[in-house]
């Protein structure tokens, strides 16, 4: 079953055309990857889905055309965007940040359970539960950003460059947790990642973007096998 479908989506920042006809379809479970070199339009594709950039073409989520909706309206439909650069509330504690994530929810009990789940998923956060977010390390902030998105109980998670700026071992920790989340939660995921090796640890299938256009789509296994493509687009 397809949960999210992009049909010939274009977007531009001023005169610069960034997406030039992206089409892809994301299944309603598992993780879907968007791969490609720097500037290929990966992040913009996520921003297009979450309503943060103007687009033309069709974006259909769960049978509903969501192109043209504001970010908060998209979020309210159950699409949680973890943007590049994380953006947590530095003045709030980790626990408060998690509660912020559950802002739209009313089920107090479910919220508490999900907090426990997030802390189980990211044990580092458990240790820093009373710290201000601004005092966290980069890896911990990334974990917090993912956890906060989980707290909104989304149907789909948009993850943007979760490994950016992290030490390899930390990045691996983050992706281990994301894989566990994929397996346990049933939340569909769109993963944007420049590091293809990391991406292939979680995604089931993926599309490759080149200068704003999807040039290739396939399962992880298929893509992993194509050495040339890996060299050309995925940085080896």
């Amino acid at each position: 079953m397809t949960l999210l479908e992009l049909e010939d989506v274009t977007a531009s920042y001023g005169p610069v055309q960034v997406l030039d006809g992206v089409s892809l379809s994301v299944p309603d479970n598992g993780a879907f990857g968007i791969l490609g070199a720097n500037g290929a339009g990966k992040t913009t594709t996520l921003r297009a889905i979450s309503g943060a950039v103007r687009t033309s073409g069709r974006i259909v989520f769960d049978g509903k055309d969501i192109s043209g909706l504001r970010p908060d309206q998209v979020a309210a439909l159950g699409i949680a965007h973890v943007p590049e650069g994380r953006g947590s509330f530095g003045d709030l504690t980790v626990r408060e940040n998690l509660r912020v994530g559950a802002y739209l929810r009313k089920d107090r009990k479910g919220i508490d359970e999900d907090i426990d789940y997030c802390l189980d998923l990211f044990p580092n956060l458990q240790d820093r539960i009373r710290s201000n977010a601004s005092a966290l390390s980069g890896g911990e902030q990334q974990m917090l950003a993912v956890a906060r998105a989980i707290m909104s109980k989304p149907r789909m998670l948009l993850l943007d460059e979760a490994s950016l700026g992290l030490a390899p071992s930390t990045a691996k920790n983050v992706y281990d947790a994301i894989r566990r989340l994929r397996d346990e939660s049933g939340i569909a995921m769109v993963v944007v990642e420049q590091n293809a090796n990391l991406a292939f640890t979680v995604v089931d299938s993926a599309t490759v973007l080149e200068t704003g256009r999807s040039v290739l789509t396939g399962t992880s296994a298929e893509l992993k096998g194509m050495d040339e493509i890996r060299r050309a687009y995925l940085g080896g």
Partner: peptide, 19 residues
């Protein structure tokens, strides 16, 4: 709480479903 979230980070607020 919504005011504080908007004050803290408008993009995150949007991604939480808060306009």
């Amino acid at each position: 709480r919504a005011f504080a979230i908007v004050k803290g980070n408008e993009n995150v607020a949007s991604s939480m479903g808060i306009s």
